[in-house]
Every structure is written in structure tokens, then in C-alpha cells.
Design a protein around this nucleic acid. Structure first.
Lengths: 343, 343
DNA sequence: GTGAAAGCGCTAACAT
DNA sequence: ATGTTAGCGCTTTCAC
């Protein structure tokens, strides 16, 4: 069923039908009702491509998901982000175009998206410090919102980010308040802006208490489970093991838990692990208690905000860039107890 | 830069330029070279929508990701599947259109995709027993491939699946060979076909040894971490705790591990946990050893196969449906030891 | 308030 | 081997 057929049924011109469906003011209200009713009855849906061709807009947003050429790992938090963004898109009749692309090919993909006019805008994932993609997108004139920030010059473009610095500062303070003095940071690659900020928050909290960050308790690598296992295993086997962990990823945290169990240690007694990037819960008297509701839900929220912001930019071009800093929702509970042997 | 402008530069008609770029045989080789050179130099890319309008094909594949209305959880394995499929699409100049949709709205979305002609075909995720979506897609005539099977009548449509039955039968046999007699199954919702098959494999293995499956050691629920924790906690606190676990999801397995630690038990001594749906590894003498390389990489592979199969269907319509059953790559190692106290 | 006609950028018959 | 022309399904002037 296309416009032509529909208007034939109605005995109206394509023009009027189109106007009625798109809520143009000049069409008679009675006509509009009739048109809409018949359209619904016949299950009419405008052809997206034709509409896009005619209007110059695509009603499509691109997401470019970089896949590491080295590890072939897809960061599972993308799923949450995508879910949040997808919600907003479908609510606004936008489509989401996903390009999974080897990180080395990213630039080419952005250029293609721009020149084929296949999307109205893009979301940039996983920015690195001074990310070249931002300049590229500005150059080709494709509207975009960055999930995260790319370091300096944050005001020249729109972004949505979690306040990683503050989240990790708060979490570190929390542990320090509990009496921990040897807190380990297991972080992502610190050329990634979020990891950089997390480290900054961690270090700030320590220094504000006059503690010197111990390099032996700070690791930064691609966040695989094995990395977490290895790092925790080494730290815990060392001369002055940490009594608490601050971990940048759920996957990595699994490795840390594994190391703890492997060494015969007990979580909550020997070690208090803090886990970022996921929601975990605990059972107490048959009740489910959150131990650390962290960024997994925040990421979904960030996805929604990015999408909303981008649609706004597309609909009202020429606005100054906007930024939003989300507070990570860190709820710390049961499994994180006081240090067993405070120094 | 569009075709019109490009052909003006070249002093040729749009037709010839189009033909040259699309490798039609009738165009002069010298002309073709010249056209391609100039096109490249001017960074020309055909407008996707215009091309789609003209050809009737969209060069786009739809993926509908159902989000549970109850739990708002996105299964993280989608990320791996999507990565695999995305690889194939970009290699074939196809785009991927993602619709994240509340599970109750799924039917509407499929109908829309069909009637707006916005995709050439779709991949169906997470089929349930006798899934209504299959009939729907056959009705509207949209080519599709199912990731997984929907139960009976498996030959009427194309699918790619992991051999869940055999994987779980093999895993169960492996544990039985090690002397375990009380093996717990922590499974997904068994109206999902994969969970149904996994259970079947588990039961078959037990019965082949003359063992009666113990209902107290079999749970089936939506695979959250908390479910794993609760189930394992209850089973391990019961009168006859299991000495090994067979778990249908990485997330759920985290909960099981947590329960084990919480009860002061030790993995590899008191309990041998088998984890499905992810790759895990172990450290032995500084070497990384896989303990269970299961479906995470298989899922990526499945994504590739689904995509390839769908493109093939789209390009050569009228073929009989095809099916592929992948063997899950189960490598079991270190963390799974003999039963501590074989009955 | 409604309609006729042009055009978005491309491909595909149908010439030549 | 190249060009002319007519659409694909929609929106948008411009007339009435």
C-alpha cells in the first residue's frame, strides 16, 4: 500500500492525503480524520526511503561501534546504551543504523555515512583523548553527540557523560571512610577519557587524605576478565595486598572475584570489592539488597540523553553545543565492609 | 557530490556514469577507469535512499532486539551476535537497522518494517516455542533467518543454531565421568527453545547412566545474576547439595559464584561450576588456560552465519530454507575437578 | 481546502 | 558504447 493507492481509495489527490497524514494545517479536519482512518485500516506506512529522498532527511541515526582489531571484544555496555537510545528513537519514529567496524576503519565509515547521506546524525562512542573523529565530523558537517568526552576543548561539541571523576572519588572516599588504606584501582586503558577521569578521582581522594597513591596498586589495561584475574592475583599475592578494589568494569571484576576465591580469600572478610559498570545485588534475610548499583543503568540513561540531544540538534540546527554530566548512581551496601585489618 | 554533478564533470550522461560505477559490462573499459578515478577523486558516494528507491532493494538488514518489559534487561550476548553479523554486512555493503523494542510491541515493528520496505530482510532473535513471528514474517513475505529454533516444524524456515542439546549432554557427561552424582541445572526460561534443548541434553545424559534427574536440582527462570545466587544458595544449603553446576548464562553464573563464596565454599574443592555462554580462562603457572570456552565466540560465529544465510536468501530467492547446527566449542579444564565426595 | 506537476538521486528500459 | 526517458514514492511549490 503506497500513497498513490491510498489516495485512489480515498478519491483524493496524493497531495491532500500526504498533507492530512503529516498534520498540515490547511487540510479540512473532517478530511484529515477520514484519511487517517482509512490509512490505519489499510495499514499504510510511508516508504522511508522515498520520504527521505523527498525531504532530504533520513529519520535515521547512525551508531558506529568500534571493534578492537586486537581483541575482538565488544564492550557489553554498548547493549545498554543502545537500548536506551533505541527507546528514544522509536518514540520519535527514528531508525537506528548500526555499523560495527574495525577501529582502524572508523574514519572511512564516518566519511561514508556523511557522503551517502544515510543518516541525519551520529553518536560517537568511546572517545579517546583529543579524538580525531570530532574534527572529522565537524569538517563534514554531520551532527553528532559524543557519549563521553574527548579531553580538552569539551565545549566545542555536544556530549553526555557520566561524572566518572566524581564517581570514583566518592567510591574511594567511601572505602577510606571504612578504614581501608590500601585500595587497588583496576582501570581501563587510560587514553580512554573515562578511564583517565576515574583515575583522577581515585588519586584525588587519596591525596585529600594525605595518602600517596601506590603504583603497585594501580593497573590500567583493556578490561578483560583475565586482566582482572591477573592483576588481582598479583596484587593479593604481593607483600602488601590491598584490602579493597575499585574496578572499572564488570567483566574485569569477575576476574578479580575469581582471583580472590582462587587464593582462598573471602569477599567481605579479607577483601571488599567495589565493582563499577554493573548492578549487583545481595541476599539478606531473603531480601534483595543492592551492593553497588553503578553505571549499568546510568549507561542506559546516557543512551536516552544522547539520543534526545541529537534529535534536538537535528531539529533545531545552529544551537550552541550542549553538555550533560550525569552523576553515577553509586549505591554501596552489604558486600563492602570495613577493612579487616586497618593499617 | 551527486551523480548529476559527477557526470557533468565527466562530460558523460548519468546513465553511463552509473553503469561504469556499477560494473555493467557494456561500458568501455577506458571510460570505466576514467569514471571511477574521477568519482574517487571527488569522493563520490551514491545516495543510499535514492538507490534503494530506484532498485526496490534497500541493502539493509533489520535486527529486532526485544527488551523484556518486566526486567528491562538486554541480553549481552546480542552484542557478540551483532558484531558477527555486522562484519558480514559491511563486507557486503549492507547496512544494519536495529530496532530495540519492548517485547509486546514486536509484532507491530515487524509489520512496519515490512510495509515501509525499510529492510530487505530480518534476523529473528530469541525464538520461543512455536513463535508467532515466524508465521507473521512468512505472511508478509519478508525474508528472514532465525537465530535459534522455534520448536516443531524446524524445516519450514531458515535458522542457525548452536547444538544446545548436545552441548549440555556432553557437559553433563563430562561431570558424570568425573564422579559427580549430584549435578545442578540452572537454566533459562524453558519456553525459550534453547533452554528447552539444554534441559533435554542434561536429562538425557543423566538417564543414560541410570540416574534420575532430581527436580530439586533443576531451576528455570529468567537468567539474572540474582536468580543464580538465590538458586545456588538454596541448593547448597539444602540437605543434599550439588557438587557441580551446569549454568545457562554467564550472568547467572556470577550469582552462583557469589553464593559459593558467600557460604564459605570453594570452587574446585567443594563445587565444580560449569559456565555456559562465555569464555573464561584461568591462570596456571603464569599461563592462561581456558576453563570453558563456550558460546560467546560461537554466538559471534552464529551472527556471521545468519547474516550470510540471509544475504544468500535475498540474492537468490525461491531456494528451499537452509539450516545450520553449530557445535558449541566446549573446552573444559582447570576449574572443573573431580567430585570432592562422590556419592 | 484541494489538486497538478515538478523534483529529490538514482536505475533501467528503450533508443541510437 | 553511450544517451534519452521514465519512473521508484514521497513532499512541496504553485495554481485554482
Amino acid at each position: 500500500m503506497n500513497l498513490k493507492e491510498l489516495s485512489a481509495i480515498l478519491g483524493l489527490s496524493q497531495t491532500t492525503v500526504s498533507r492530512a497524514l503529516n498534520d498540515y494545517p490547511e487540510v479540512n479536519e473532517a478530511t484529515r480524520q477520514r484519511v487517517k482512518a482509512v490509512a490505519r485500516k489499510n495499514n499504510y506506512r510511508p516508504n522511508t526511503r522515498a520520504k527521505g529522498l523527498a525531504t532530504g532527511r533520513t529519520l535515521t541515526i547512525g551508531h558506529v561501534i568500534p571493534v578492537s582489531t586486537r581483541h575482538e571484544i565488544v564492550n557489553p555496555i554498548f547493549a545498554d546504551f543502545i537500548a536506551g537510545a533505541g527507546e528514544i528513537y522509536s518514540r520519535n519514529d527514528y531508525d537506528m543504523l548500526l555499523s560495527v567496524v574495525a577501529d582502524v576503519d572508523e574514519e572511512r565509515v564516518y566519511r561514508e555515512l556523511a557522503s551517502r547521506r544515510s543518516v541525519d546524525g551520529v553518536i560517537v562512542h568511546g572517545p579517546r583523548e583529543n579524538d580525531p573523529r570530532i574534527a572529522l565530523l565537524q569538517e563534514v558537517g554531520l551532527p553528532f553527540v559524543v557519549h563521553g568526552r574527548a579531553g580538552t576543548g569539551d565545549s566545542g561539541y555536544s556530549w553526555v557523560d557520566v561524572n566518572n571523576r566524581r564517581a570514583f572519588e566518592r567510591a574511594t572516599n567511601f572505602l577510606l571512610d571504612l578504614g581501608h588504606r590500601r585500595v587497588a584501582l583496576i582501570n581501563g586503558v587510560e587514553t580512554m577519557h573515562f578511564a583517565n577521569r576515574r583515575r583522577a578521582g581515585f588519586v584525588t581522594a587519596l591525596e585529600n587524605r594525605g595518602l600517596r597513591p601506590d603504583p603497585a596498586l594501580m593497573r590500567s589495561e583493556e578490561m578483560t576478565e583475565y586482566f582482572g584475574f591477573r592483576a588481582a592475583h598479583e596484587m593479593l599475592s604481593g607483600p602488601t595486598p590491598p584490602s579493597a578494589f575499585l574496578i572499572s568494569s564488570m567483566i574485569t571484576a569477575i576476574g578479580v572475584r575469581r582471583a580472590i576465591g582462587d587464593l582462598g580469600l573471602k569477599l567481605g572478610r579479607d577483601v571488599s570489592a567495589i565493582i563499577h559498570d554493573d548492578e549487583l545485588s545481595y541476599l539478606r534475610n531473603g531480601e534483595e539488597v543492592p551492593i553497588f548499583t553503578a553505571t549499568r543503568s546510568s549507561v542506559r540513561h546516557a543512551g536516552q540523553l544522547c539520543a534526545e540531544m541529537l534529535l534536538d540538534i537535528i531539529r533545531h540546527p545552529g544551537q550552541p553545543p550542549a553538555q550533560k554530566l550525569l552523576e553515577a548512581d553509586l549505591t554501596v551496601g552489604m558486600s563492602t565492609g570495613p577493612a579487616a585489618t586497618p593499617d
